[in-house]
């Protein structure tokens, strides 16, 4: 990794990386809301540079991180940093709000929990929890019986092992989401098959980082 801090630099790059994969392409505009220790010490640790580098697809060991502000200007990527109180959350946390070229807005809340490891706790306002260490499939779906079985059946048919599976919902019978961390990468045909399920609203796939 590139220094100076595993939680404030490497973890920040990783969070930026996951955010980019959530919106599937490089956004045209990004706003970072820095919380706690991130807000207080972001400049000295290069947290801003690393977050932005991650959004542009650079990994924690990319030696271009220190010049990421220049790369963003060259790429025409608009960026802003804000301080914010994100509530009762890990001291190294950031909310990333991205806008893609088609005008869509994406939002991710994540924390850097030490040694470069990260935890994403919400996407587009939906609470969840995953580390990004495994290939991760995220669904937004209608909370109804059988959805988990249908999705896991599609995954098992391809011989893919589910390492962790978590289901979340806002209230009974309404919006729900599922986070499936796998041991193998998922292909587009698998994701499409999940998308075709009647109860599924949206599927996001995040490659292992």
């Amino acid at each position: 990794m590139v220094g100076p801090s595993s939680s404030h630099t490497a973890g920040a790059a990783r969070l930026g990386n996951i955010a980019r994969r959530i919106c599937g392409e490089e956004p045209v505009k990004v706003d970072f809301f820095l919380h706690g220790s991130f807000a207080r010490t972001w400049q000295g640790h290069g947290t801003g540079k690393a977050l932005l580098a991650g959004i542009m697809g650079m990994g924690p060991a990319d030696e271009r991180i220190k010049d990421s502000f220049d790369y963003a200007v060259q790429a025409g990527l608009e960026y802003n940093f804000h301080t914010a109180d994100l509530g009762q959350i890990h001291p190294n946390s950031v909310k990333i709000v991205m806008q893609t070229a088609d005008g869509r807005l994406w939002e991710m809340l994540g924390s850097s929990v030490g040694g470069g490891k990260v935890l994403v706790s919400s996407i587009n306002g939906m609470d969840m929890e995953f580390s990004g260490e495994y290939p991760t499939i995220i669904t937004r779906h209608l909370d109804q019986p059988g959805v988990v079985a249908q999705v896991s059946e599609i995954i098992s048919r391809r011989g893919i092992n589910i390492a962790f599976l978590k289901v979340f919902r806002s209230s009974r019978g309404s919006d729900a989401s599922m986070v499936i961390e796998c041991d193998q990468e998922a292909g587009t045909d698998l994701l499409d098959e999940i998308r075709w399920l009647q109860a599924i609203r949206e599927v996001i796939f995040i490659e292992a980082g």
Binding site: V2, G3, S6, T9, G116
Partner: peptide, 10 residues
């Protein structure tokens, strides 16, 4: 901002 190994942190 040189390249190092987090061991266990930077």
């Amino acid at each position: 901002m040189g390249k190092i190994v987090a061991a266990p942190t930077a």
